[in-house]
Simulated assay, not measured.
Amino acid sequence: MSRPRTIPVGARSGRLVATQERKPGEKRVQCVCDCGAQRSVRFAEWGVTKSCGCLSRELSAERRRTHGRFGTTLYTTWARMIQRCTNPDHPRWADYGGRGITVCERWRDFSNFLADMGECPPGLTLDRIDNDGGYEPGNCRWADYSTQNLNRRPHDHKHGRDPETGRYQATGGAA
């Protein structure tokens, strides 16, 4: 299909609208984008070029955005859970990853965590039902602080922690 030799004012190509008539022999089409930007497009690209560049930026940003939840309380809860269990440099590593608490493979993806746990109700935080179990769908719930305080490891400081597992020892002392 051949391109018309003239392009009238008001002709549209995607988000671009011609603002001046393009006459035979002219190399460029003067136009305005729906976003308001003025552009000059090569005649050979008229019909192929769809915007001033704003469409490409929007589509690129959409592709990068996976869930749009970065920075929310729920995302921060998830990210901190991952860090406590996987990062030996985390200040709470000894209480989590260092003693064998893991995050199931499914929950390494925030979208899966959100699908399984849902939104955190106001006043509640993430809690593991079995404190020696990992973060996984069957072992986690949203709980208030009083419920969580009833669900803690014993803090028997007389016996100390096992240096290898980080768990409190029932008898004897730290080696």
Rank of each mutant, 00 (worst) to 15 (best):
H157G: 14
D127S: 09
G98T: 02
D95C: 04
P122K: 04
R161E: 10
N149T: 01
P137S: 15
T102N: 07
R65Q: 12
L59N: 11
G71N: 12
N139S: 13
G97Y: 06
S60W: 13
Y96S: 01
G71M: 06
H90R: 00
P121R: 04
D144R: 09
M117Y: 04
K158P: 10
F113E: 05
A61W: 11
T72N: 05
L74C: 03
A37N: 15
T165C: 10
D144A: 07
Y75D: 00
W46S: 01
E58G: 14
S51T: 03
W142S: 02
S40E: 14
A79C: 10
T77H: 05
D34A: 02
R80G: 13
P154C: 13
R106W: 11
G53Q: 03
R161K: 13
P122H: 11
Q169E: 15
M81S: 07
R141I: 00
W46V: 03
L55S: 13
R84K: 07
L150Y: 09
I129N: 11
Y135E: 01
G97P: 10
D95Q: 08
Q83R: 08
G138H: 08
S51H: 08
E105C: 08
L114G: 06
G160Y: 15
N87R: 06
T73N: 15
G36E: 08
T73M: 10
K50M: 07
Y135P: 00
T125R: 07
I129W: 14
G47E: 01
T171G: 09
R64P: 13
E45W: 12
A143V: 02
R42M: 10
T66C: 13
F70Y: 15
F70G: 13
R42K: 13
T86G: 07
Q83V: 06
L126I: 01
L59F: 11
G123E: 07
T77S: 13
T147I: 04
E119K: 00
V103T: 01
D95P: 08
C35A: 11
S111D: 14
G118F: 09
